[in-house]
């Protein structure tokens, strides 16, 4: 009986019987096509990500007035009358750290901040890089007095996210797969946002503080990555919505 009638092959033999080799090649080709097809289908079916910008490796310098509360921000005067009065840049440190330590005692001072821009439509952030924050001269046209507009008590459904990832550093920045990262970011002092969708389906965000308007990132870190409902008075500060959270709970 020859190998064509009763093929047998083990891998240490130098050559496989031609008939068996041909059959096995067909089977292997089928497995490879199925594997690659599965990969293509998985890549193609991935959900579309939100827009966002992280200008990694391209730091810029901005001059503005530093605001420590509720979370460190740089208020940069607008350079054109067509624009708003100022642009708010939330400030964070590299990695998963907020900028509380870097801005301590600088509230109200004019500074030059070097950092990498993080942004999505309607929100700006700066990740501080070397040389960091240095004193600057107050410009002739100082910022007007910035106030808050009370919008009343509101209730929102959404998800607590860390502002750094959500604005542009990471995709996806929501849900269970990102929960560990969001937890670590809030633990390190990154400002918490509530990501919510308006009736038109567009995403909106609110900066979250405690009921007294103070930082509360540690309080919110246990709520990341899941649907939540938060209630409290909402204030408009420039183009930023801030909620002083009085009640919060899981689910809708």
């Amino acid at each position: 009986m020859d190998q064509h009638e009763d093929p047998f092959y083990v891998g240490y033999q130098p050559v496989a019987p031609k008939h068996l080799a041909r059959e096995t090649r067909t089977a292997v080709l089928g497995v490879i096509v199925m594997a690659l097809g599965t990969g293509a289908a998985l890549a193609w079916s991935a959900p579309r990500e939100d827009p966002g910008v992280f200008e990694f490796g391209h730091p810029r310098q901005l001059i503005g007035r530093l605001q420590e509360t509720p979370y460190p921000s740089l208020l940069v005067p607008a350079d054109s009358e067509r624009q708003r009065v100022y642009t708010r840049y939330l400030l964070v440190q590299p990695g998963k750290f907020g900028a509380q330590a870097a801005t301590l005692g600088l509230d109200g001072q004019w500074v030059t901040v070097t950092g990498q821009r993080i942004a999505r439509p309607g929100a700006e952030m700066l990740e501080i890089t070397a040389p960091g924050i240095v004193p600057a001269t107050e410009p002739d046209s100082a910022l007007p007095q910035l106030g808050q507009t009370a919008l009343g008590r509101r209730t929102y459904h959404g998800e607590v996210v860390d502002s750094k990832c959500w604005l542009g550093v990471m995709r996806p920045a929501t849900g269970n797969v990102h929960r560990g990262c969001a937890y670590r970011c809030l633990s390190g002092g990154i400002p918490p946002l509530l990501m919510t969708r308006n009736p038109e389906g567009r995403t909106e965000h609110l900066l979250l503080t405690d009921a007294d308007g103070r930082q509360a990132h540690q309080r919110f870190k246990g709520l990341v990555g899941r649907p939540v409902t938060v209630s409290g008075p909402v204030f408009q500060e420039g183009d930023l919505l801030v909620m002083r959270v009085e009640q919060m709970g899981l689910g809708k």
């Binding site: 590299p94 990695g95 998963k96 750290f97 990471m170 269970n176 990102h178 929960r179 560990g180 990262c181 937890y183 670590r184 970011c185 633990s187 390190g188 870190k221 246990g222 990341v224 990555g225 899941r226």
Partner: peptide, 30 residues
Amino acid sequence: QFHALGDVNPVVSLLTGGADFHDPATFPFE
């Protein structure tokens, strides 16, 4: 990506970061 450059060791972060067994949507799948 998710656990380095934080305020605790990445492996500690992986094992402790907000684990919650009560909901499939927040189960520590890691």
